[in-house]
């Protein structure tokens, strides 16, 4: 199962705050895709995922200042 969180337009640190909330609602092994455009998120979201022990299964830049990251819940 994959859940998509679209937080384009949200400024730092809200994309990360939202992602932390969203991952609580999914089951272990399920994936959360976060689409964001806050530059600082390129650092803070993967860092949080790695430190929390989740696996990043995809991470790509979609275009000018737009990114997507997929996190598999631990």
């Amino acid at each position: 199962m994959k859940k998509t969180l679209e937080v384009m337009g949200m400024v730092c640190p809200f994309p990360l705050v939202e992602a932390k909330e969203a991952i609580k609602e999914i089951q272990t092994g399920d994936e959360l895709e976060v689409q964001f455009d806050c530059t600082q998120g390129t650092e803070s979201i993967p860092r949080w995922a790695a430190e929390a022990g989740h696996e990043v299964t995809a991470y790509e830049q979609l275009g000018e200042a737009a990114w997507t990251i997929t996190i598999k819940k631990k």
């Binding site: 337009g9 949200m10 400024v11 530059t39 830049q61 000018e64 200042a65």
Partner: peptide, 17 residues
């Protein structure tokens, strides 16, 4: 720096922001 790294785009905040 932002232009050269593909990180520049005009971004409009919502009302609350």
């Amino acid at each position: 720096a932002a232009k050269m790294s593909g990180e520049f785009r005009f971004r409009l905040p919502d009302l609350k922001t």
